[in-house]
């Protein structure tokens, strides 16, 4: 591997060394850890046959969504691809409802009818969970259009991967978003591989933050393994959007530890590559280190957090297994809204 993710920064923002209060650090740690433990549990339940179909885990990328969400306001909206469990938890959705959707039970956010890739919560401002690569990008632009139309000051956080960054509809969206100055942050989660194809093998230009150049959209490359750098970049981008300047692109250099989906044989990269990043760039280890080095918490207090998070995930897993399957009558509901 040539460079570690996040080794380079390219952008127009002058960024100092990011800082955070002890409370913020502890919150980011806990939020990231919840995603990590939740995804590990999901992987386990998948292996037990309790989760079916496709299941795309977010492990390794936690700093992206936790950092970006720190810049969000209550009226903001979020949309992403099918690697979506992290976004849902970061938006404050109930881990029990998310896990029960993974198991296809009636307690799931979509009553068991959507599954891992298709979950939504209007209440939490989370608009999916979309299974077609790149399709969420025009949708996110439309959500931003609605923010502007209603004048509610909202910004849409539109996530997509390095693979989706080559889809045509992404550029159709960039054009319209820039043309109409829509308040949308395009967050490219560049985890180096679109399924099994590396960015270098799929993209003629690999600086994805520059993909908006043709439309005059500013872009910034961010170390997506550092939650504070992500947060600061997202705060800056959101300010730009809220001030009416139009869209912003953030390329998050990140890494997924697991395969593309559960059935990924991972022959396109070495075990050494994965373990090196885990050892040197893990986003959770980084913040744990900051907390301990800063003397904000001791080992015992960290363990308490770990234990609490584990409890939340265990309870979510139990709920997801105990919640009954949908009633057969649900087969025919929710096809159309009855006027």
């Amino acid at each position: 591997m040539a460079t570690s993710p996040g080794a380079t920064r390219r952008g127009r923002r002058k960024a100092g060394e990011p800082t955070a209060t002890p409370e913020q650090l502890i919150r980011y740690y806990e939020d990231m850890l919840l995603i990590r433990r939740f995804e590990e549990k999901a992987g386990q339940l998948y292996g037990m046959g309790l989760i079916g179909g496709f299941c795309h885990l977010y492990i390794g990328q936690e700093a992206v969504v936790v950092g970006a969400t720190a810049a969000a306001e209550p009226q903001d909206t979020v949309v992403t691809s099918y690697r979506d469990h992290g976004q849902m938890l970061a938006c404050g959705m109930d881990p029990r409802g998310v896990m029960a959707e993974l198991t296809g039970r009636r307690g799931g956010y979509s009553k068991g009818k959507g599954g891992s890739m298709h979950m939504f919560s209007r209440e939490a401002g989370f608009f999916g969970g979309h299974g077609i690569v790149g399709a969420q990008v025009p949708i996110g632009s439309g959500l931003a259009f609605a923010h502007r139309y209603k004048g509610d000051g909202g910004v849409t956080f539109t996530y997509f991967g390095d693979g989706a960054a080559n889809q045509g509809q992404v550029y159709e969206s960039f054009n319209m978003a820039a043309l109409w100055k829509l308040p949308v942050i395009f967050i490219i989660e560049n985890n180096k591989y679109g399924m099994g194809t590396s960015v270098e093998r799929a993209s003629a230009t690999t600086e994805l933050c520059r993909r908006g150049d043709a439309y005059g959209i500013p872009g910034e490359q961010v170390n997506g393994m550092n939650v504070l750098e992500v947060r600061d970049a997202a705060v800056h981008a959101a300010e730009q959007c809220r001030s009416g300047k139009g869209p912003f692109i953030l390329e998050m250099k990140t890494y997924r530890y697991r395969g593309h989906s559960m059935s990924d044989p991972a022959k396109y990269r070495t075990k050494e590559e994965v373990s090196k990043i885990r050892a040197e760039s893990d986003p959770i280890d980084l913040v744990r280190g900051m907390i301990l080095d800063g003397g904000h918490l001791d080992d015992a207090a960290i363990k308490d957090i770990d234990k609490r998070v584990k409890g939340v995930v265990t309870e979510a897993a139990s709920f997801a297994q105990d919640s009954p399957e949908p009633d057969p009558s649900e087969l025919y509901t929710d096809v159309l809204v009855e006027a």
């Binding site: 909206t77 949309v79 608009f127 399709a135 990008v137 025009p138 949708i139 996110g140 632009s141 439309g142 959500l143 931003a144 259009f145 609605a146 923010h147 139309y149 209603k150 045509g168 509809q169 159709e172 969206s173 054009n175 319209m176 043309l179």
Partner: peptide
């Protein structure tokens, strides 16, 4: 022009943008 909007020639994009706007309450 807030409510009657000329789009670029980009059917896939503006159809999706319309869907997003509908999800967003319009």
């Amino acid at each position: 022009d807030r409510r009657v909007i000329d789009t670029p020639i980009t059917e896939h994009g503006f159809a999706g943008l319309g869907v997003g706007a509908a999800f967003g309450g319009l």
